[in-house]
Design a protein around this nucleic acid. Structure first.
Lengths: 184, 184
DNA sequence: CTATAATTTCAGTAACATCTGAAACTCAAG
DNA sequence: CTTGAGTTTCAGATGTTACTGAAATTATAG
């Protein structure tokens, strides 16, 4: 096969992947462009510069700059200086598990922890010390307390699972996964 | 404590929970209002009608109607007729694990499965049969193939874990979780 | 059938998120 | 210092999603 055609096939395969990753990101609350930039850095497998991103995804310099910064803040890509180059380059982490772990940690901190705190707070509003013994026994109060407790248990367990993935990302994640899968 | 005050405390605790749940939903790609309606149905612990939802969350009839329907479509709340009542009521599933499992199943189907399919498709574009033996050996092609493979493995494993949660939601989820937690 | 309660639909609007492009800034080399 | 490649910032434009309210539809009771 001719050189140029190979080039094109490669480009094609990468673009297909990038698009899909962007779509998925969107439904998980990450904006399409950011997800696409990340996918590009990942699939390229080598450092890319701002202009690469702009051309490849057809976006403005401003957008590229802001999104690249945000991805660096998340920690899923890294800034990289090349000797004798004025431009900055960016490269993705190569370990998918590590990327996942970084994202999971952040989302746990930002979303699950606050929910847990809120539930505890709600429970406090409805305990005997606040309402008095008689009021705390009302069926409607009991019901709400029970639902809060179930939800708390759920979030608590999910939290622990997340935590395990996070702390085991680098070294023994495969072990964790294997245990889980074998047990099922 | 006076009756009215108890009422108010209960309302307050519920509202706090509802708000937080709505905020969390938003960052997970579920719109705030839908998440809030679901939270209301869940925390109320008893059937609520459209007007309850409208008053409690201060939204229009149209919005309430559409969102309630969507939640029914998801399967996390159910329509309910009361004898001699013209209005329709809605109640949430009470088992948090079951709700999670329903949502997980749907998201797996809608988001993870297509990603897997796309990755396989990309790999096909870059295999020997398509590119020829020489081209397939180019370092850039090899690199992309390697990255696709890593990502595929990750999604595949995640998929299996999801699947296990889904199929074990009703009966033995606690077992699954226990095994996982003990192993960590 | 008619009257009426409840629900659904949807066009228009409001609110929000994202993106652009140009100006301001940074910094290394001369 | 000056120059210019490279980067960042942000006001305004654009695009997207969510919401309202009123009209159309459906369902129930008499």
């Amino acid at each position: 096969m001719a050189e140029s055609s190979v080039e094109q096939n490669l480009q094609n395969a990468q673009d297909t992947f990038i698009r899909r990753w962007g779509e998925m990101g969107q439904t998980w609350g990450i904006n399409r462009t950011m997800a696409e930039i990340h996918a590009l850095c990942y699939i390229a497998g080598q450092p890319v510069c701002t202009d690469d991103v702009m051309e490849r995804l057809n976006i403005s310099r401003g957008n590229a700059s802001m999104s690249l910064r945000a991805l660096c803040d998340w920690g899923v890509i890294r800034r990289l200086h090349k000797r004798g180059e004025r431009r900055e380059f960016f490269e993705s982490l190569s370990d998918v598990w590590e990327m996942f772990s970084i994202i999971a940690a952040e989302r746990k901190r930002r979303e699950m922890d606050p929910v847990l705190e809120t539930i505890k707070q709600c429970q406090l509003m409805l305990d005997e010390a606040t309402l008095g013994k008689t009021a705390a026994k009302r069926p409607d109060v009991q019901l709400t307390r029970q639902r809060l407790a179930s939800m708390e248990e759920f979030v608590e367990v999910t939290n622990k699972i997340f935590q395990q993935f996070i702390t085991n990302a680098r070294s023994g994640l495969t072990r964790v996964v294997k245990v889980l899968l074998k047990a099922l």
